[in-house]
Design a protein around this nucleic acid. Sequence first.
DNA 1: TTTTGAGTTGTTCGA
DNA 2: GTCGAACAACTCAAA
Length: 465
Amino acid sequence: MTDDCAVVWFRRDLRLDDNPAWAAATAAHGAVLALFVLDPRLVGPSGPARRDRLFGDLRALQKRLRDHGGDLLVRTGDPVEVIPATAQEFSAGTVYVNLDVSPFAVVRDAAVRQALDTHGVGWNGQWGTLAHPPGAVRTAAGGLSQVFTPFHKVWARTPWTPWPIGGDATVLAISDESIPSGGPYPFVADQHGSAAQPGELGAGARLLAAADRADRYGDERNTPSIHGTSELSADLKFGTISPRTAAQVIGESTPGRAALVRQLAWRDWYAHLLHATPALVHSPMKPQYAAITWLDDDAGFLAWTEGRTGFPFVDAGMRQLRATGWMHNRVRMVTASFLVKNLLVDWRRGEAYFRHVLVDGDTPQNVGNWQWVAGTGPDASPYNRIFNPVLQGQRFDPEGAYIRTWVPELAGLDAASIHEPWAAGPLDLAAAGFTLGVDYPSPIVDLRESRQRALATYEAVRPGR
DNA sequence: TTTTGAGTTGTTCGA
DNA sequence: GTCGAACAACTCAAA
């Protein structure tokens, strides 16, 4: 052993279990220093939900390390300065990290690695943020599949590359800055007891709860008024659970479980795509769509963010997001489709807003899903998919329970009129004590016209015209 | 090389 | 109201 101390630089892997960077460091060195850098460039743009989630998970990680006789060292600044300085201060010979695919992280890590190199400090990168590392899931031709299903087939049959086994290094009991207090730890509404706790101990309980209902996932995943999804997105974002542990605990013994694990393949796929093509954060995966003329509809965009478009299912989702930092997946698709297709606002504006506000806001996932919805990215469908927000609401929230929760001014309407109050008879509305345009906005756009407008706009840039 | 099969999450129209 | 076909109709991966 050439050096007896190593730094483990935590970023979005805030756990000790099933963490290959942590394991590799504790196996190879006599002592490890656990470090987190509060980078204002990351913390600043985070909405309150994600920031509070981060602070809660950091405190939980610190508590866990203290229980082991160590501590978490938290420092504020630019990692390109903080990491080499800290490594030198503690005579560490190697810095261990779990790698991340976002272009910001890739550029940052390259700069840090170069700075460490000039000081003779080594770098050990692991892929503990994903089930399979980028490049490990290939088509027969050796490339990265541009269609999900063939990717998933290979993903599911490819054995996991083994992660290092941890050792018994001493964890240094060093801390100086305190973790900012922030607000209460945000979690998805129905979690109680230990499942409401921050960090990996809470995440373990949340994972067990998700596994308990996973058999029903196929039936319940699209109903936003119930807890039918895993609700693990923020745990995966901050790494309080390992995607491999999640896949193992959920298992594949029933169709619902297999469908839920399949979602982890989507997560890997979007990360692999961004890793291969960093420009996806701003450029369409299908290049012809760079020529689309989007509308600068500032009033429409503002109405969308504030949940007052006049479309109850859309507004319910946008208000849930604003209030909690989280939105049900089905509603994310519908609200995103409404912005891009019905308002013809550039998907990048919506992507930026979601990424700011979401508790789980994660560049590869957010960009991949927005490009999918916008039709500029990885959707294998041969037709132009435009969601009808009224039909989607009637199909997935038939009684209007979700709408009533988040748009209380509509709560008095019956299930028949709550999805399209403008179509209800004036007497029905009056009976509910409700005036359209006063108590709740009239629709800000005509669905049929805006649909035709979107089709024409996309058609105009189709290749071969 | 050419061909063939298949593709997360849809909507509308007309019988 | 229900059902099946049509719809803005293509691209990728594998054989």
